[in-house]
Amino acid sequence: MGIRATILNRIVAALLPLFLSCAMVQAQDAAKLDGLFDRLKTAEAGEASRIEREIQLEWSKSGSPALDLLLQRGKDAMTMGDYPAAIEHFTALIDHDPGFAEAWNARATAYYMAGEFGPSVGDIAQVLTLNPRHFGALSGLALILEETGKPERALEVYRAALAIHPHLQGAAEAVARLEKAAEGQEL
């Protein structure tokens, strides 16, 4: 038992710096995202677009070249309109890393594009569980709610997305459109 404990202690000692460096990288990434989101709330429209791209770049980092390749293959399949293949790639990615929110978001988008709203909403729920500030997932959910005849709920979700990203493309217009439609109903 003594030799086994010694070996385990050495393994832990060897791996400890790796775990600590990973934790430090995650903390740095979280701090970077926090700063980007702070800037996003007060940015002008042009600057907001640049910050949005930076946030999306951070979100798309899986930490693994193999997983990044699966993500890119899925995106390429979506670009080509091959939604079943995209869904397969994103599902494989989720199987390997179920904590990677952007994989869930990408699959939610592929499901939406394939006309499968139920699975898309399920994946959006997972995205928002992992990343509650994911304005893209909120916007996608609002779009689905609007398309499925739930304008009041869609309006709430669009407003939530705008609270995170005040210049989110299409969301302000959707809010104005839905508010106008709701006013017309009150007559």
Results as ranks from 00 to 15, higher is better:
residue 175 V to C: 10
residue 74 G to T: 03
residue 103 A to R: 04
residue 94 I to T: 02
residue 3 I to K: 09
residue 85 A to H: 06
residue 64 S to V: 06
residue 142 A to I: 09
residue 136 G to P: 03
residue 91 T to L: 05
residue 141 L to M: 12
residue 33 L to Y: 02
residue 73 R to L: 04
residue 100 F to K: 00
residue 135 F to R: 00
residue 10 R to D: 09
residue 107 R to P: 02
residue 41 K to R: 14
residue 157 V to N: 05
residue 142 A to S: 09
residue 87 I to Y: 06
residue 48 A to H: 08
residue 147 E to F: 08
residue 171 A to N: 03
residue 175 V to S: 06
residue 134 H to S: 08
residue 14 A to T: 11
residue 47 E to S: 12
residue 94 I to S: 03
residue 183 E to V: 05
residue 52 E to W: 11
residue 128 L to E: 07
residue 150 K to F: 13
residue 155 L to Q: 01
residue 182 A to F: 08
residue 40 L to F: 01
residue 115 G to P: 12
residue 31 A to W: 05
residue 108 A to N: 00
residue 122 G to S: 14
residue 117 F to Q: 11
residue 93 L to I: 05
residue 53 R to L: 06
residue 92 A to C: 04
residue 22 C to T: 10
residue 14 A to K: 06
residue 42 T to Y: 15
residue 111 Y to V: 04
residue 19 F to P: 04
residue 2 G to A: 14
residue 162 L to F: 10
residue 157 V to R: 01
residue 168 L to G: 07
residue 78 M to W: 01
residue 116 E to K: 13
residue 49 S to H: 13
residue 178 L to I: 05
residue 83 Y to E: 15
residue 41 K to G: 08
residue 14 A to Q: 12
residue 10 R to A: 11
residue 26 Q to H: 11
residue 86 A to K: 00
residue 125 A to D: 15
residue 61 K to F: 14
residue 16 L to P: 12
residue 71 L to C: 01
residue 46 G to H: 08
residue 110 A to L: 06
residue 100 F to T: 02
residue 108 A to S: 12
residue 187 L to C: 11
residue 110 A to P: 09
residue 40 L to K: 00
residue 100 F to D: 01
residue 139 S to T: 10
residue 113 M to Y: 15
residue 91 T to C: 06
residue 108 A to D: 01
residue 33 L to F: 07
residue 32 K to H: 12
residue 52 E to F: 09
residue 132 P to R: 00
residue 100 F to A: 02
residue 95 D to E: 12
residue 185 Q to R: 15
residue 112 Y to H: 15
residue 132 P to E: 10
residue 126 Q to T: 11
residue 121 V to M: 10
residue 161 A to G: 04
residue 17 P to A: 07
residue 10 R to S: 09
residue 128 L to C: 06
residue 102 E to L: 02
residue 160 A to Q: 09
residue 166 P to I: 00
residue 105 N to V: 03
residue 122 G to K: 03
residue 134 H to I: 03
residue 60 S to N: 11
residue 114 A to W: 12
residue 67 L to M: 10
residue 155 L to T: 00
residue 53 R to C: 01
residue 119 P to D: 02
residue 141 L to F: 05
residue 108 A to K: 00
residue 153 R to M: 12
residue 9 N to D: 07
residue 58 E to A: 12
residue 104 W to Q: 01
residue 136 G to A: 08
residue 92 A to H: 09
residue 152 E to K: 13
residue 156 E to R: 09
residue 61 K to R: 10
residue 46 G to P: 11
residue 149 G to D: 15
residue 3 I to N: 12
residue 119 P to V: 02
residue 132 P to I: 00
residue 159 R to I: 11
residue 38 D to G: 02
residue 148 T to Y: 08
residue 12 V to C: 05
residue 77 A to W: 10
residue 181 A to W: 07
residue 6 T to S: 14
residue 91 T to K: 08
residue 67 L to H: 07
residue 10 R to N: 10
residue 42 T to L: 14
residue 146 E to G: 07
residue 168 L to C: 04
residue 88 E to M: 10
residue 45 A to I: 11
residue 44 E to Q: 15
residue 7 I to A: 11
residue 178 L to N: 03
residue 17 P to C: 07
residue 39 R to S: 00
residue 50 R to D: 13
residue 43 A to P: 04
